[in-house]
Simulated assay, not measured.
Amino acid sequence: MSRSERLLDLLNILRRKRLPVSGQALADELGVSLRTLYRDVATLQAMGAQIEGESGVGYVLRPGFLLPPLSFPIEELETLMLGARWVAKRGDESLRKHAESALGRISAVLPVDMRDAMDATPLIIGPGSVLENHAVDPVLLRKAIRTERKLAITYRDGRDTATERVIWPFAFAFFDQVRLLIGWCELRGDYRSFRADRLVRAELLEARYPRRRQILLAEWRKKQGIPTTG
């Protein structure tokens, strides 16, 4: 393992830890000596990583520090590029625009040889249909999820029956042919999934829903029998 890869691994370990972790535990996980671990921590701190702590106490990484994409191995870069290219082809207008912007940012910071390798990548996105625009802008739906605010919606089901509901949206699921807005429905008193193409109207309310998004998502996953990872 090169030193740059080890530094990246150290950052990834610290990102996963919510509480301070001892230097010895970090050294053991990386397979290096404690002296090497101390040097690596000092190097990352000099690069701007907000790693707090000291020997004998433990270390914790404060949020907000990112390494440029060139620090990723080629396989991880290919994965990121493939995902961004899929969104650029299959997402809604806003997601497509931001995916293309992200691709440009990644390419801009890559060394020339890696940029050439990415341009010639054998991983390609096959043809597929782009979903047509819906009555409700998906940007509004994603904003409601991000800000944990209630939505007042008019929803037309498969029998063409329209209902007025207030929901607590906490996830947006992407499938090849449909997009599903997932939330707690006050009308039904339970979790429900709503096809984005059947939303007739949506209004972002000022009220925040009373439970955190992560808690709702975890509960819904458990009820659906969906693993909590991935």
Rank of each mutant, 00 (worst) to 15 (best):
E164G: 00
V21A: 07
L11N: 12
P73D: 04
R6N: 02
E93W: 03
R142L: 06
R208N: 14
R212V: 06
L187E: 02
S4D: 14
Y191H: 04
L110H: 02
P169E: 13
T36E: 03
M47I: 04
R96C: 14
R213L: 12
G230N: 07
A42N: 14
G31E: 10
A144W: 09
V200Y: 03
L140H: 05
K97H: 03
A207R: 13
G91K: 02
D197F: 00
L123N: 04
V87R: 09
E78R: 13
V136C: 06
M81D: 15
N133Y: 06
L10I: 11
L44N: 06
K222W: 02
E5W: 07
P127W: 12
L7K: 02
R212P: 02
T43A: 08
R212A: 08
G128M: 13
D190M: 00
V166N: 06
G225F: 12
E206T: 04
L103Y: 01
E75T: 12
P68K: 05
D113W: 08
L7V: 08
E206G: 02
Q214T: 05
G183H: 04
I145W: 09
G183Q: 02
P20H: 06
L37N: 07
L37H: 07
L30H: 06
R221S: 00
Q50E: 15
T163N: 04
S129W: 10
V87Y: 07
V57Q: 14
S129I: 13
E148C: 10
W184V: 03
I153C: 08
R62W: 11
G225L: 14
R165L: 11
I74K: 06
G225E: 07
P20L: 02
P111Y: 03
L14C: 05
L77R: 01
A25R: 01
S22P: 03
V112R: 12
